[in-house]
Amino acid sequence: MKTALSVAFAAVAAILPTRSEELPASLDKPYLGCWLAFSESRDFEFLIGGDGDSELFFEKDRKRLMTGGCTLKVYYVLEERVGKGEKARWSYRRIVQDGFEEFGKETDDPPLGKPVSFTATYTGGTKVKVSHIFSKRGVEISTRIVDKGEARGELRAGVKILVGDLFRHIDDEDLEKKETEAKLEETEASVLPVGERRAKRIKFEDYEVNLTKEFPKGARAFALESDRYADHEFELTTANPDYGVISFEQKREVIHGFHVNWFPEPAKVSEKDARLVIRVK
């Protein structure tokens, strides 16, 4: 399996030679941040954009699937706990534009298994070190707070993944039609709830299922396979499953997309195995 990684400054992205022509179309544009990293295999491509967001592209016949909703958007998130008692909630903090440091040595062919890292600055001056370790099967991501900045409340850093609208071509009035069921039957999820030993299968034909309500305590592992991904499957878990929690944010029918959030367990943040593992089959 061929793997390639390129790292470049955004200031010169517009004048990069042939390499810039190989970038996914959605990321071939001016960058808000300082750098980008690109990892390629026969099953997927993973690109870290200069604005601090990443995108995973599935591949079919060595070509990227660019159909709307068929990529995974990956965001590096920081939240601060505000309020007290029943009014306490997690408040989202944004990455400051151009707020990147320590993005490492430039290389277009790094060895597998070595970290590719940067330090992101969020509103309030909080700094988070984000590290990626690429392999032939996927990527592992860790998030570690290195400077609290002006924050006064409890902080947590993690990863938010947008599972896109795979069936945007299906309207609400089409959901009851028999032909719609046939379109959905090749898409299925697997969820291992916190505190349980067996995973639960979620068939997308049951489009009324709500992952947020179905798994209120979160999950230790999540997987999704679909013909919309060219029959690929992606899996999310923690290097040590007990060191991280996966939760879901779903506002529409499951077939129209949802967010998957990953955060390390508070007591395990400093552990080596408290890192998100993304695998693609």
Rank of each mutant, 00 (worst) to 15 (best):
G244Q: 00
K84P: 01
K2H: 04
F44D: 04
D242S: 08
R228S: 07
E80S: 07
F58D: 05
E102H: 14
A10D: 13
K178Q: 10
Q250V: 06
E186M: 12
I170C: 12
S26Q: 07
D171N: 15
S270V: 02
L211M: 05
K268I: 00
E21H: 11
F263V: 12
E196C: 09
K177Q: 13
H169E: 10
D53F: 08
F134A: 06
S117R: 15
P266K: 01
H132C: 06
K2V: 02
K177D: 08
K160Y: 08
E265P: 02
G69T: 03
K73L: 13
Y75W: 08
D172L: 11
L224F: 10
L65C: 01
Y229G: 05
N261W: 15
E265N: 06
V96K: 03
R144M: 08
K114P: 01
K178W: 09
T237M: 02
G85A: 06
I255T: 04
Q97V: 09
L72V: 04
A221P: 09
A8N: 11
V209D: 05
R279W: 02
E176R: 15
G244E: 02
E214P: 04
V130L: 11
E140G: 02
S190L: 12
I48H: 15
W262Q: 07
D165K: 14
G113N: 08
D109H: 13
C34W: 15
I170N: 14
R279Y: 02
F118R: 14
E150M: 06
E106G: 04
G99Q: 01
L27V: 12
S39L: 06
V277L: 04
A8L: 08
K268N: 12
K148V: 06
R64W: 01
R19L: 07
T121S: 06
G164A: 11
E106R: 05
S226H: 10
K29Y: 09
R228G: 09
Y75F: 10
E55M: 10
K29A: 12
E154D: 05
K203R: 13
E208A: 08
G149T: 03
G153P: 00
P24L: 07
A221V: 01
A223S: 15
L23C: 10
G153R: 03
Y31R: 14
S39P: 06
E102C: 05
E22Q: 15
F118Y: 14
K281M: 09
F234R: 13
D108H: 13
E225K: 15
D61I: 00
R137P: 00
K114R: 13
Y31L: 09
R228A: 03
